[in-house]
Structure formats: structure tokens, C-alpha cells
Design a protein around this nucleic acid. Structure first.
Lengths: 195, 195
DNA sequence: GGGAGCATGTAACGGGTTACATGATTGG
DNA sequence: CCAATCATGTAACCCGTTACATGCTCCC
């Protein structure tokens, strides 16, 4: 049996590496604005979701608390209106350093691809051909709409130097969703050829 | 206060809908072969992962137990060699029906996109331009390799009618990874234009 | 009056991963 | 002899979601 007094290692000093979501939230704050959790959720919905994903609001609040406990963000109460307060968050120099290190050094996780439409086509031997084409056609429209939305987001975004990289990623997002739409079209043609 | 005797509804009879992973595992079995958990993991690694993803082996074993408790699969011990047994699984008619219903009726989850490379480029204001290009270039190679692997898988796959739909999805996978590679190239060009 | 938006959080749950444990066989 | 492969499973843990709770303001 292990000696109980030695079997437990002291809590490691080096900061445990955070989930990518935490870095994404900190990343939103790295553009320099003071924001509430609610603000962050809206911003994630209108930008992050096109190439990453938008966490649930409850998770954002949780990550903000964790980031604050690590000293990566600071917060204070600010008047929302006469009666209520809201909590504004700002990135700290320590947080900026940690995020910079993460961007530079952390191994890049391979992109997650979990394509429910492909999964269903793969099981085509169990489906009615018409219904299958319907599923793919619906996905085609979904991709087309994502393309519309990311294009709209790009047009309304600022053009200053500060937004160079987000703009570049939005361009990438447009191409991505256009490709996704074209891929759906090609799959529809393949399905129709089956008769 | 709610009356404790009525505040709790009776356990619903209708089968709770399973996570997509369970349907994917059942889907592997729907091609009609008797397989072990280990076999299923290998097959997932060589086909599912190109368009969905390959669950951990421990999860496959767990899902198999759940599917068996629902009557969707049956299993029996078979001799692996003189000393050991392995457990073979087969889909049941009930399981086939349930899977068919799922393919037909379940709402299709929008494809998950969680692109770590795009996230890092989006934070480009914190990175050294050369390092950023390095990240994208590595991703370009990753996509190219996925393309190679899915092409190889398609060439070695059976050509009979049974494999029509898997083959179609593999074709889709080839196009997908080719597009991903081209998207990385385009992003590299955009990054280089920044100077 | 009611619904949408603003704003913050807790609790329960499920999905999925890694690490661990075990042990035989095959091939270099 | 050692590593890889075959084969099955448990336990701990974390990530993330949904559902729930609260309450104000603005606008129709």
C-alpha cells in the first residue's frame, strides 16, 4: 500500500492548461474592450460560431470566474441602470501573456468534424432515396444560410487594422461555407445518379 | 410548495433518444457482420473518422452494453483461441428498425465545426506572423494527409452494391479534405499579403 | 398586460476522454 | 525478450448542455 503521506503529490504550480473555450473567451477580451458575460455571448454568436462555436451562456459565466481566479481577467460592478449593476470584465497583462503563449506554443487540436448529414448518407441502405436527398438538400440550404450570415457579418465589421485577423478568418469562413454548400450539391448529384 | 407525491412524473415509457455515437456504432453493425468491440473500433478508425469521428474504445464497449440492454443488438461468447473468449455482436431486427427510424425521423444536428487553426489566426494580433503561417502550413499538411488516407480507404473498399453509400460518403470525404487543404492554401496567401 | 431583451447565476445530467488493469499471442 | 496486437473492461474526471430561478426595462 502506498504511504498516504507521499501518495498525494502537491498541487502543481504550473497553470493547468485550460480548455480551448477558456482561451476563446479570453481571446474575445483580448481585443481590448470591457464586456459583460452577456456581451461576450452575443459577440460569440455573431463571430466565433462561424469557425469555432458559441458556448452556452452559463459556460461563459463559469469560464469568466475561472479566468478571474487565475488572474487572467479582472472585473468590477458597473451601473446597468438606476437600480441594477452589471459586471464588466477586462483582460489583464498576465492574461494577455498567457493567451499569447497559448497561441504560440499549444499543440493545435485537429479540427473536429462531426457531420450528421454524412453519417445519415453513409446509412443510406436503410433509407428511402427521396428522404435521403431531402436531408442533403436541407443541409445545402443550411450551408447557404451560414454563408449569407458570415458574409453579412464581414460587411458590417470594422475595417481598421485592429480587425485584420478577424476579417481574414471571416473570409476563410465564407469560403468554408461556400465549399460546404458545393459539397452538398455534388452529393445530391451523386445521389440522383443512383436512380 | 409542490406536493411531493405529484411533483415527480412517472418515468417515461418512450425510449430516450440515444446520442449519435450509439447510432453510429449500431450503424457499423447494420452492414450485417458479427463484430467485437475491438473490431468496431478499428473499423471506425478506418472509415467513420473521415466524416464523423471515432469514439474511444471504452465508449464503444459502453455503447454496446447499452444497445444490448435495449434489445438493439445481441451478443455471445465466441472462441478467440484455445484459452480465451471474445464477444461478438450482431444487430437485431428491433435494432435495425430503430436505426431506420432514426435515419428517417431524427432532426439532423448541424455539423460541428470547431476549428482550432481558425481560432489561432483570429488571434493573430497576438502572434508572430511567421509562427502563424507555420500553424496554417502544418494544418495544410494535415488536410493533405487526411485526403491521402481517405483516398486509400476508398480504393481498398469493396465495390459491391452493399457499399454504394459508404463509397459515396468516402467520395464526399475526399472532396471535403481537398477543400480544407485549398482553404489553408488560400489563407496562407492572405497571410503573406499582410507582409 | 405581456413578450423580448438585458443580466447573472445554480444544479443536474450526460457524453466522452484518459488512465489504469489484465492477460494471451505473434513476430522480429 | 520485447513490442505490438488482440481483447475487455472500470474509474475518475472534465467539458458542456439544458432546465431552472430571478428580476428589471422597454416597447407594442
Amino acid at each position: 500500500m502506498a504511504n498516504p503521506s507521499t501518495s498525494r503529490l502537491p498541487r502543481e504550480i504550473a497553470p493547468r492548461s485550460l480548455p480551448a473555450t477558456a482561451w476563446a473567451v479570453l481571446g474575445l477580451l483580448s481585443f481590448g474592450r470591457d464586456l459583460t458575460g452577456y456581451d461576450l455571448k452575443k459577440w460569440a454568436d455573431s463571430s466565433l460560431r462561424f469557425f469555432y462555436w458559441s458556448p452556452a451562456i452559463s459556460q461563459i459565466y463559469g469560464e469568466l470566474r475561472r479566468l478571474e481566479s487565475l488572474g487572467y481577467v479582472e472585473s468590477w460592478a458597473a451601473p446597468q441602470d438606476e437600480l441594477r449593476n452589471k459586471r464588466l470584465y477586462r483582460i489583464t497583462p498576465l492574461g494577455r501573456d498567457a493567451l499569447t503563449t497559448w497561441v504560440r506554443d499549444s499543440p493545435v487540436e485537429p479540427p473536429v468534424l462531426k457531420h450528421g448529414v454524412a453519417l445519415r448518407v453513409w446509412l443510406g441502405h436503410l433509407a428511402d432515396p427521396g428522404a435521403l436527398r431531402g436531408i442533403v438538400a436541407a443541409h445545402r440550404e443550411y450551408a447557404a444560410q451560414m454563408l449569407d450570415e458570415v458574409s453579412a457579418a464581414r460587411r458590417t465589421a470594422g475595417q481598421n487594422a485592429e480587425w485584420t485577423y478577424p476579417e481574414l478568418v471571416e473570409r476563410w469562413g465564407e469560403r468554408y461555407w461556400a465549399a460546404e454548400r458545393d459539397l452538398a450539391d455534388a452529393m445530391l448529384r451523386d445521389l440522383e445518379e443512383l436512380g
